[in-house]
């Protein structure tokens, strides 16, 4: 009897899902109509934007998400559809496809990894939907697949860290371990390259180990624990983001060493937790990677909407902080 009831229920649920799907299709059709400009149809003059975020893997990402959601509001003239890919490319491709099907006016996304975007971006191009990349790049050779890429220059960030390490710590022989970001992601590749370029001329610096900590605090800590066991003489930890650096600090403290003194930690990002650790002297140097891309994204879309053109590469302004600098800005840090 129970199973019978369930069969009926699941059928009802199935029908409901089907109905929803049909409704969504209908919405998409009207969007595809004569004016690609007015997307959703019933919203009238709002600009519909589909945004696919990487996930919520770090404090930086949370700040980035908030900035975009706060900038693309209805009051500002936008109708934002936001989706979280949970760090999976397939989720992101799916989200972009559904935005294309809905016929949104603009698609913006931060690609989880660099490669494998050509076919879905071609679909967007075929549907005449401009694509804006935020924060991370794609490696497509055909640059006409997207209008612009707005974000920090990751190579430059790695380079600035490398230069600081080289000038301030590389005056004597030091061993560096590196905590990489998600394998294959643009920031992980570029921050590694930039750092390597900057320390190339300095024979005092040797990078003795490099593993991925997947940009998360937990994995940063696990990997650092392993490093501490395998290499008794680590002088510097270079983490590709603050969260992994914070995880490494936990591991260093658990090993009975003092972060900032026995082992120096340098990171990229500058989120609030990282800046706090910097002010406390646990982190020695942070190169900022500005997450507040929302206002810039809104401006780009407005410009395009009015028929203007934008630069194919827009670099956001990043700062760098030492302990004194962190203390000065920490009080009114929003993220």
């Amino acid at each position: 009897m129970v199973s019978n009831m369930f069969r009926k229920r699941s059928m009802a649920a199935g029908i409901a899902v089907l109905a929803l799907g049909l409704a969504a299709c209908a919405g998409g059709d009207s969007g595809d109509g004569e004016t690609a400009g007015s997307g959703g149809g019933d919203e009238g003059d709002l600009i519909s934007v589909g945004f696919s975020q990487v996930g919520a893997e770090s404090g930086w990402r949370a700040a980035n998400t908030k900035s975009i959601q706060d900038a693309l509001t209805e009051e500002a003239g936008f109708d934002l559809s936001f989706s979280d890919a949970q760090q999976k490319q397939e989720n992101q491709i799916q989200a972009i496809r559904s935005y294309i099907a809905q016929g949104v006016d603009y698609i913006a996304f931060s690609p989880v990894v660099e490669s494998g975007w050509d076919s879905v971006l071609e679909e967007a191009k075929a549907a005449d939907i401009p694509v804006i990349l935020t924060d991370r790049a794609v490696d497509s050779e055909d640059t006409s697949l997207y209008v612009t890429f707005i974000g920090s220059d990751f190579v430059e960030e790695g380079k600035r860290i490398g230069e600081w390490v080289s000038e301030n710590l590389g005056t004597e022989p030091i061993n560096v371990v590196e905590l990489q970001g998600t394998t294959g992601s643009a920031p992980a590749i570029d921050r590694k390259t930039g750092f390597e370029d900057a320390i190339e001329g300095n024979d005092n610096i040797s990078v003795i180990a490099s593993e991925t900590g997947n940009f998360t605090r937990a994995e940063g800590k696990t990997v650092m624990e392993g490093f501490l066991q395998a290499y008794p003489d680590i002088d510097v930890v270079y983490a590709h983001n603050d969260d992994m650096g914070l995880g490494a600090i936990e591991a260093i403290e658990a090993a009975g060493k003092v972060p900032g003194q026995d082992i120096k930690v340098v990171t990229i990002d500058g989120v609030k937790d990282g800046m706090t650790a910097l002010a406390e002297g646990k982190i020695s140097y942070i190169v900022e990677c500005n997450p507040l891309l929302g206002p810039d994204l809104a401006e780009i879309i407005k410009t395009l909407e009015e028929g203007g053109t934008v630069e194919p590469r827009i670099v956001t302004k990043d700062e760098a902080f030492d302990q004194e600098g962190a203390k000065a800005v920490l009080a009114d840090r929003q993220y």
């Binding site: 996930g55 919520a56 893997e57 949970q86 760090q87 998360t216 605090r217 937990a218 800590k221 914070l246 995880g247 936990e250």
Partner: peptide, 13 residues
Amino acid sequence: RSSDIMAADANNA
């Protein structure tokens, strides 16, 4: 797990 990093990471924990 959450005490290890003193943070609740809903996506990755």
